[in-house]
């Protein structure tokens, strides 16, 4: 395994606050929020990051891996600067998410789960994002875009290219 990872001082403070939300004897409850923190820090949750979280909680690292590999939100591999997730569940499928995904795929030149060569974009599909009245929806990093069409995709991409 590569060099052990450690949180920065600032992240350690946030981690301490997260741990404070749970009774002291149930530190493991903080595993999901701490994995979110690790992902914010390092972009993805590597085995080294899992080991770091395990040390913080005081549990066996495989117990963190059990969690990190279960939830789809945790990136196991490095991802692009912008992660684009098209909801593909039924309500969005009924309103045309297929063409949104195809358009994105064509524009970015990448397929499902892939990252552009320049490391800017990763393309994904997401299960229902609970905004079915505003579909198709597209989650770009932390922001939800609604009523997305191929034209709107172009606007979003232009905005991201600028930003």
């Amino acid at each position: 395994m590569a060099t052990p990872l450690e949180f920065t001082e600032a992240a350690r403070e946030r981690a301490a606050k997260i741990l404070d939300r749970y009774p002291a004897e149930y530190r493991k409850s903080a595993v999901v929020p701490l994995l979110h923190l690790a992902q914010e820090e390092w972009g993805h949750v590597s085995p080294e990051a899992m080991a770091c979280v395990a040390r913080l909680i005081g549990c066996s690292p495989v117990k963190v891996a059990e969690i990190a590999t279960f939830y789809p939100m945790f990136n196991r591999e490095p991802v692009g600067e912008h992660v684009l997730a098209v909801c593909h569940t039924l309500p969005c499928a009924l309103t045309g998410c297929g063409s949104v995904f195809d358009h994105l795929s064509e524009k970015l030149g990448i397929g499902l789960g892939e990252t552009t060569a320049d490391g800017r974009f990763t393309l994904r599909k997401s299960e229902c994002l609970a905004a079915c009245d505003r579909g198709p929806v597209l989650l770009v990093n932390r922001r939800l875009h609604t009523h997305v069409s191929p034209e709107k995709v172009d606007e979003i991409l232009t905005e991201l290219e600028k930003g």
């Binding site: 149930y26 530190r27 493991k28 409850s29 903080a30 595993v31 999901v32 994995l35 979110h36 909680i57 969690i67 279960f70 939830y71 789809p72 939100m73 945790f74 997401s126 299960e127």
Partner: peptide, 18 residues
């Protein structure tokens, strides 16, 4: 962290327990 099963009440509790 994106798992439907956590909406099941005991799945939610297990998730909350880490």
């Amino acid at each position: 962290a994106g798992a439907y099963i956590c909406g099941e009440e005991t799945g939610l509790i297990e998730s909350l327990e880490g």
